[in-house]
Design a protein around this nucleic acid. Structure first.
Lengths: 153, 153
DNA sequence: CTATCATGAAACAAATAAAGTTACATGAAA
DNA sequence: TTTCATGTAACTTTATTTGTTTCATGATAG
């Protein structure tokens, strides 16, 4: 366990929810995603706060996507996870007195900012609908049949 | 201790070596950089293997930059550190069977690749000489005096 | 009503990796 | 031959992510 894989986990789960077409429990999602029900709840909690998904208790409860797929960008999801830093390195000291270290920080900060900008731009441009379509493309090409998918209703 | 800050550490050290104009011991560098002599040796080791710096034992020993500053790019240094991944997130499973997860990985991999490309391009374009110049600029502007720096000899 | 199911949340344990530290061997210079 | 400095291995500390246990809360079925 090293790098943050929550974005990967959440996206995987959301698209399984879409494929299912009805509420999925944390336990079901955890099975799909090879993880733990508590991890699912913990990770989905931020998305619920931002209105991307909703959750219901009791019989027939579970998780549901609360908005059209085309209205949920990967950036929305990233922000719902608390915007963890997507850059894997950092300066040793963020506000040093040493002029040399400040000059080093300036260069590295510029690189980090550009990396973050590239990430943000991409995540803003991609919606869940885009990924969902890319999942269904090979299937449709093979079977030439699309009626049994929930979003075709 | 969270993110990898070795690049920051090494750059800081190299420019202090440049400022000093003579070999600096690991202990001296560690003081400048608020770290430990062993950390300095460990971090500089990769740079020595790649011929960017040299080290000498015994009296008067220490670390020296082995090439002109303009011939050392930040990418050279990054590679000498073993090319640690500069992206701070990852896929949960790199080669999953699930088609949905594969589609998710495709999107995130594309974003990660673009971030790495941006980083690499920037690091390739910047040399130690560039940063060294940016350190001296404010000094020169203030004092209008440049003769006491080793690289002006 | 109550038994069951599912989320909510807190607390704790395991895994990983960077950085710090200790200890000692090696080799060069005074 | 003493001192200084690197080379290296082993261990500890700290930070972060993920996994796990436990129990409270609330909703539905019967």
């Amino acid at each position: 366990m090293k790098r943050d894989s929550r974005l990967s986990i959440v996206l995987h789960g959301l698209l399984h929810m879409q494929a299912q077409g009805k509420p999925m429990t944390s336990a079901e999602l955890a099975l799909c995603m090879d993880t733990n029900p508590v991890v699912v709840r913990r990770t989905m909690a931020g998305l619920r706060e931002n209105g991307l998904v909703s959750s219901e208790k009791g019989h027939g409860g579970g998780w549901t996507i609360a908005r059209p797929l085309a209205g949920i960008s990967l950036l929305d999801i990233h922000e719902s996870l608390g915007e963890p830093d997507v850059v894997g390195f950092s300066n040793k000291d963020e506000s040093p007195g040493c002029l040399i270290e400040r000059a080093v920080n300036r260069e590295l900060d510029a690189a980090m900012d550009e990396m973050r900008a590239v990430f943000t731009a991409r995540m803003r441009a991609i919606t869940l609908a885009d990924i969902w379509d890319s999942v269904r493309e090979p299937f449709n090409a093979h079977h030439n049949y699309r009626k049994d998918h929930p979003d075709d209703a």
